[in-house]
């Protein structure tokens, strides 16, 4: 999957004032790249990830996915793309509290129409891969925050996505756990050739990334190429 933004701008209206969260952003996400987006809080990182992840529409500018204008895609195709070709990791994990670890990982596969047997087999494999083979049947509230983020990563990988979009995945974690999660994301990028786009403040992620972009007041500048 190749993603390209051309002059992408996103504005919000809050009361009488208009806020430009993302301003004329041009960037490309190549296949199997590990990209970090850094910037202070409120700089528009999450908004940009939402647009790239088809969870939001740009106010102006274009978003191309494999050279197709994704803004013109119908809602169903955008959902299908999110489900089958993208994986999402959130700062606050966003696991469904009523489901256990295994069921949380199975959910995207169930939505994609995989059989119960396939779902179970793959979910167990993924949870083993993130080191949670002993916690399969635990609900999120019974897991540590590090374990919850591992489950979230396993869930993001469930449908073998071409890109993982992670919004401050280590933001809630202590440094040791954060290091493990970064290692996990790097592993996925290197072994599976899955592109990873991470919005972060974490220097360790920046060091590991192929490309690092800096967002400031909604404007993007390339900070560093490895």
């Amino acid at each position: 999957m190749r993603i390209k933004t051309v002059n992408v701008t996103r504005k919000y209206r809050i009361g009488p004032s208009e806020i430009t969260a993302v301003n004329k952003v041009n960037m490309e996400i190549g296949e199997a790249k590990f990209i970090a987006i850094i910037g202070p809080s409120g700089s528009g990182k999450s908004t940009l990830l939402n647009i790239i992840g088809l969870n939001d529409y740009p106010t102006s500018g274009k978003l191309f996915i494999d050279n197709e204008d994704a803004a013109k895609w119908p809602s169903s195709l955008r959902r299908k793309t999110r489900l089958r070709r993208m994986g999402f990791v959130f700062q606050t994990f966003n696991l469904l509290p009523t489901l256990n670890a295994l069921e949380n990982v199975e959910l995207p596969m169930a939505l994609a129409g995989k059989t119960r047997k396939e779902q179970r087999k793959k979910a167990v494999q993924l949870l083993e891969a993130v080191g949670l083979s002993e916690r399969l049947f635990h609900r999120p509230k019974e897991l540590s925050i590090g374990e919850m983020q591992r489950v979230a990563i396993a869930r993001a990988l469930a449908n073998e996505p071409e890109i993982i979009i992670a919004d401050e995945p280590t933001g809630e974690l202590d440094s040791k756990t954060a290091k493990e999660i970064i290692g996990l994301l790097l592993d996925i990028n290197r072994k599976n050739k899955t592109a990873v786009v991470v919005a972060t403040h974490d220097e360790k992620i920046v060091e590991a990334a192929d490309e690092t972009y800096m967002l400031k007041d909604g404007e993007l500048m390339l900070k560093r190429l490895k």
């Binding site: 999110r82 959910l107 995207p108």
Partner: peptide
Amino acid sequence: RRDFATLDAIGAPLSY
């Protein structure tokens, strides 16, 4: 809201 937002993010069909 957060749970339904998560379902939206991971691409759950509206019918689901």
